[in-house]
Design a protein around this nucleic acid. Sequence first.
RNA 1: GGGUUGGUAGCUCAGUCGGUAGAGCAGCGGCCUUUUAAGCCGUUGGUCCGGGGUUCGAGUCCCCGCCAACCCA
Length: 484
Amino acid sequence: MAMEDSNSLIEQRRAKLAALRARGIDPFRNKFTPTETCAEARTHYAEGREVAVAGRITAHRDMGKSMFLDVRDQTGRLQVYAQKNVLGDELFDVFRHLDLGDFIGAKGTLFTTRTGEISIKLTSFVILAKALRPPPEKWHGLADTEIRYRQRYLDLMSNPEVKEVFLKRSRIITEIRNFLAARGFVEVETPMMQAIPGGAAAKPFKTHHNALGCDFYLRIALELYLKRLLVGGIDRVFEIGRNFRNEGLSRKHNPEFTMLEAYQAYGDYETMMELVQSMICHVAQQVLGTLRIEHKDAAGNVTRTIDLTPPWRRIKYKDIVRERAGADWFEISPEQRRERAVALGAEIAKEYEDFEVTQAVFEKLIEPTLIHPTFVTHAPKELIPLAKLSPEDPSTVEVFECCINGQEIAPAYTEQNDPIEQRERLEHQAGGEQQKLDEDFLIALEHGMPPAGGMGMGIDRLCMMLLGQESIRDVILFPQLKPK
RNA sequence: GGGUUGGUAGCUCAGUCGGUAGAGCAGCGGCCUUUUAAGCCGUUGGUCCGGGGUUCGAGUCCCCGCCAACCCA
């Protein structure tokens, strides 16, 4: 923001800053070491115990010759009580002119007020950082969605429930790592800049490398590099990282989003089913302490309850389609399927192939209804070119889509490891535009990749499900917005 | 890309039929040494998102644009 962006409040604070300096006070101290956090001071309460805490001033109640301040750090709030006869006239005057948003370090002794609140009786304080701009309003918090997203720090400082979401997101990812590490998975990092973006059907972002004199694409999936590592002998491997897809933005889509992919040699899609179920239950139990997830509306009424208690429902793709679209769905003619899909309310584009008509029915009419965890297995082979055919029904592949909260959360396959088969499937990949083949990936397969199960999981959507957020922007700290 | 809603003080929001721009919080000044959305008294603060148009007169009506949220594609 430009320097000339100013108003009377900012000017007043700048004047206060100058006044502090004129009194020989440094309003931006290099260091102050608290003895503990606000929460710790509260937990380890003992009347008269000396403590030093640091944090941001979030409220003040001026009583004349004494004054209450709320100081907040990451762990919570602690009330500070200052008295004129303790600090002396001059320091008390400085204290009285502190602003909401300023950081201070406060030393004093713990006591409990008449109303029962644990507080610090101040003996001394230092200003650690002067805030030159006013914080958002204290009671309503920050409501303007645009400011909340563009200046997330304001959202975090004034809306505690928003901060809670992001602290929990961090713990979710930590628990995913703990779970996978306990099972012997190795975490790796693979290229985000790729000459040929593969592993999914999505439009990539393009960038240019000056020294190499060539274009690269930002990755759209992790898959093909992780499989190279299976070839290389890392039998249990995973990566948590950002994917980039140059497509529309919505409540469910951000151009960059976080993906977990994990591969296990000598496993298959059923191995991954157990992995996904156990992992999500582990995370929910560790972070939320429950397997029953409640989503609430703005008024606090429960709008949806998701029950993660295992075992999760398993159903074949064809069976769930038959449930919704008619038992004879796969017996009628493609033209009839098309007509019925439209009658059921699915949007069917002219150029759709037959399997895409069925997929549209699945995506529009079935997936949104899958609130409790459901493994939809054995999708038609045309949909997924990187999976192995099912021996019992070779028109389908050994895959599942794990749907929770009406969204795809985690797809998984028995991974294709036949290089000749793989080449053919990629060459005939569904979706129209022929993407360039990643020849190096196919060469890697020709060196031999062990049979393996693989899974991907949209971390943002997982967080939405677990944390009861209806928009992906509310689980991404800095969602993509158009520059102003 | 299409539709709907919104953009007014630092923040949260009112603003009637087109007729001098409002409140609460925050700020500033005063009173108050256990308050906690502290209280009481006084008070400052506006490019009404931007640009055109209609009109004697536009925050308000019309057109174009920008940004955001939601819905649809």
